[in-house]
Amino acid sequence: MLGFPDAMPLEGLVGGIMIGIASAIMLLGAGRIAGISGLLTRTAGMGSGGTPRKVAASFIVSLLVGALVVQLLSTGVVSRYPGAASLVVGGLLVGFGTRLGSGCTSGHGVCGMSRLSRRSLIATPVFIISGMITVAVMNFMGIGQ
């Protein structure tokens, strides 16, 4: 893409439309929000109320199968991971933060923003700006490369 040599706008748009259709099936079919942090919470037997565990677990397991199918049918899905320290710190904060903030990129970013939910229209820019500041600070300090 012009000016952004690493961008994959077409793959991004196609993948995004697939995610949108998937979320629409969850909304119009099951009558629920396709929020991954919430569905993972229920799958792990945490949280109260909300999506029944069987429904949540069916979604989460299918999520992995869907990615596996793409992996097997393609030349390989690129996934470049950071070291263990970043994974542990990042994982703890993502797990705690998504529960405290009632959602992640899918629940707030996709489902809530498109619903024009006031909470999601606030939460999404907050976690994006928070992530941008984090990356800028880490780069400045020369850590997490």
Partner: peptide, 23 residues
């Protein structure tokens, strides 16, 4: 809501992962 979004954003920035891609 705000505190959770800030903490989630920090974790997202540290690892480059949110729940769906991580799973």
């Amino acid at each position: 809501l705000i505190a959770g979004a800030i903490l989630f954003g920090i974790g997202w920035g540290v690892a480059g992962l949110c729940p769906g891609p991580a799973l």
